[in-house]
Nucleic acid binder design. Structure first.
Lengths: 330, 330
DNA sequence: AGAACAATTGACAACGTTGTCATCATTACT
DNA sequence: AGTAATGATGACAACGTTGTCAATTGTTCT
């Protein structure tokens, strides 16, 4: 493996200058920088993180605050965080408690770079206030809260919900039930908005009877769907705000003897592992949790004092599988 | 943080001797070793992996071969492997291809310590043969194959299946359906054996009609259960060889209008995330995948030439949740 | 006892990077 | 134009460990 000394020789500068370029320090002439970067590229240089961590006195720990009942969510996030940390030579410390004391003690540790908050903690006012006072950087996942504290990373939940609703409308569905997520989550609001806007834009009426309250759990999806299917004017499609509730909706449909997607279409949201583990496999919205968290780690890793309070919006995609089909004629 | 030099001062030896003790090298007098270990304990020493990795020329990469359709399985394993690697200062390289060429190229890399094989690759004869010839150590997960090649790590699937079957029998169930797993997996055989032995030991007859072939997928659990429930002599309980099939079984029960656990008890196996995401939550067998894989990493990390071909059997536990209840009187 | 050998321990370099400080080049100011 | 301030670069030490090899101690054999 090439070292910065090899690069230095090739570029005709001192190895310290190479180090400066690679660490994006100021006070390097653009021409010099370019020479170094070219040489690094040719030699296919990769930082030796062991050496860097040994010598560097920079903080290297990222504190991940996570408290989500869904184990698969927790796992995905943890995996992404770990991969991100590995990439940037950082260490991860994982926490499920987020009281003032815990956060303060983490923040006072000189090793700690900053925090990553996952929903619903991302929108917890107390935590946000505590962190703001402590002057440690933090990144909030899955929220685009207007209040500009810290950096936020999310997808455009509203647009995604809009698109998947429009997809159902395109299949001929006119009565589309909606199962809301847990009230503590900001995504709950945005997904509902997207659904409502899509109906409106396509000349359909928004009926409150077709909108039920869930909490992101399988059981709530089951119960909500039972309620929706007992309406006199039954929906021909159901939009569950996440995949677990969609799985519950599937079970409720089976219970009623409705075939999916023949008699009822069901869509979820997230493209979590459950979406493929279920029969029929769910049409859903893919958001890459691991991308999200890797981005969060990257932001903290490359933190400069100037780039605070941005909002990063990542891509999403409709995933069409087997749980959706044309609406039945009524 | 204390260094080996601090320990050396406290123990009155040279820092090189401390290094030797901590690396479990030979040729250290027992008394010296003890002095060093005591000093290390008092100072609460922790190895600086950055420094170690920088200087050490030992290989540091573990190749993980994984090809499992279940995303949640893949995630758990990857997470455990990453945590294990972090703990031992190693790097993980992940592979879903396992043809001869891929394996050979990984093995020829001097950086590679060894391989971890996950089911069903753990029992793939071709792979095992290739690896044996390449003389790189490997650890096989989820198998206790009698053929003693490489180290194997597993739980006692047979005993676990026995116990959960006996639990059902204890609830009064006399007709217990069984859904087999995918044929490529060795666990499939052992879980079936445990089921059969429990029936036999409790004076129940083993009926082939009550045993159906699945493949670990939700869909196969659904179909198998439908078949079992259409028998003239219906089972009052169903033992699915994993949680995904148990989830499918739940859906089939709903479809038939059977309440779980009132009219039908269902048990799964693995205690995967799905077991809690489903309603009612599944009674199942917990096996800690992450423990399993961490152990695998540890074995490779501390590899000595002498301890090959062992079989490590980890603990399991019955997890009683809401999908099981007393048998209906017939 | 003395020689030969093995076991045990230590001195010191080296890994590839960042931190500190010194030096040289350039710009800004009087 | 001369001086001060700033920008750009370099020389070298240092991080905490392992690798190499030499020095010391203990053991075995003649």
């Amino acid at each position: 493996m090439p070292t910065i000394i090899d690069i230095a020789k090739k570029a005709g500068v001192s190895f310290k200058t190479v180090s400066r370029v690679l660490n994006e320090e100021v006070n390097v002439r653009p021409a010099t920088r370019q020479k170094v970067l070219d040489a690094a590229k040719i030699l296919n240089y990769r930082t030796n993180t062991a050496a860097r961590n040994l010598r560097s006195k920079r903080p290297k720990v990222i504190a991940l605050l996570i408290n989500n009942p869904s184990q698969s969510y927790t796992q995905s996030v943890q995996l992404g965080a770990l991969l991100g940390c590995q990439k940037h030579g950082l260490y991860l410390s994982l926490h499920t408690k987020y009281d003032k004391k815990t956060i303060a003690s983490l923040a006072s540790n000189a090793e700690t770079i900053g925090f990553i908050l996952t929903p619903p903690i991302s929108d917890n006012e107390k935590v946000l206030e505590t962190l703001s006072n402590l002057r440690k950087p933090f990144v909030r996942l899955g929220t685009e809260h207007s209040k500009a504290i810290g950096t936020s990373i999310c997808i455009d939940d509203r647009q995604a919900a809009y698109k998947i609703t429009e997809y159902l409308i395109g299949l001929g569905h006119k009565h589309i039930g909606f199962i809301k997520g847990h009230v503590d989550y900001q995504t709950t609001t945005h997904r509902l908005l997207g659904y409502q806007e899509a109906l409106e834009a396509n000349g359909l009426i928004i009926t409150n009877k077709l909108i039920t309250q869930g909490d992101f759990s399988y059981a709530s999806g089951l119960v909500s769907t039972e309620r929706l299917l007992s309406l006199t004017k039954k929906p021909t499609a159901i939009f569950a705000s996440n995949d677990e509730m969609a799985a519950g909706a599937l079970a409720a449909a089976y219970k009623k003897g409705l075939r999916v997607p023949d008699s009822l279409s069901i869509v979820g949201f997230d493209d979590s592992p459950i979406a493929m583990a279920v029969y029929p496999q769910l049409t859903t919205v893919r958001q890459s949790l691991s991308d999200m968290i890797e981005k969060a780690v990257e932001i903290l890793a490359k933190l400069q004092t100037d780039n605070k309070n941005q909002i990063v919006i990542l891509d999403h995609a409709l995933v069409l599988r087997d749980s959706t089909g044309p609406a039945l004629d009524t």
